[in-house]
């Protein structure tokens, strides 16, 4: 066990855990931030996507010891009032079915739009391919990303 000081959603947090503990379980078990989901544990489904210094990362494959001073952003910290343009676009298109993967989808989409503000269909398909939606909301996710891009112009 070791003490780690983390910057999560703009707040300083301290946890005492095994250094190998994935950030995912630190968030969920120790910091009560359950918006970040467990789906596969091997970085194949994207349900656990968070941002490290603004870049998308799979928290299930990020040992807490590797986080260091990087700013961790989870779905809970994406916006104060849940009004980030991507969250709003998700509501506008009523994207979710079961909803379980959607926090990860949103975090990947936000990172995508930061890197490519006006992505093509092919860029969306390729970059979002790491996030599985078992309910099959892919066409709506794409439409929501394009809406968010349009509004951010």
């Amino acid at each position: 066990m070791a003490i780690f000081k983390l910057n999560v959603n703009g707040k300083s947090r301290e946890v005492d855990v095994d250094p190998s503990t994935p950030l995912l379980w630190v968030l969920r078990d120790h910091l009560q931030l359950v918006g970040t989901k467990y789906g596969c544990g091997i970085a194949q489904c994207g349900a656990c996507t968070v941002h490290l210094d603004g870049y998308a990362a799979r928290s299930c494959q990020t040992p807490v010891s590797s986080v260091g001073k990087q700013a961790v952003t989870t779905i809970e910290g994406l916006s104060e009032e849940g009004d980030h343009p991507v969250q709003q676009a998700w509501l506008e298109h009523d994207v979710p079915q079961c909803g379980y993967c959607q926090a990860g989808q949103i975090m990947s989409a936000v990172a995508l739009l930061k890197a490519i503000p006006n992505p093509s269909d092919e860029q969306i398909e390729s970059i979002m391919s790491g996030n599985i939606c078992r309910c099959g909301t892919y066409t709506r996710i794409k439409a929501a990303i394009k809406s968010a891009a349009e509004k951010s112009k």
Partner: peptide, 19 residues
């Protein structure tokens, strides 16, 4: 979807979210 706002903000909704 009545749960839409909670889903997109990561509120606890699922069995796995129970602590």
């Amino acid at each position: 979807n009545v749960d839409g706002p909670k889903i997109v903000t990561g509120k606890p909704l699922y069995g796995l979210d129970i602590y």
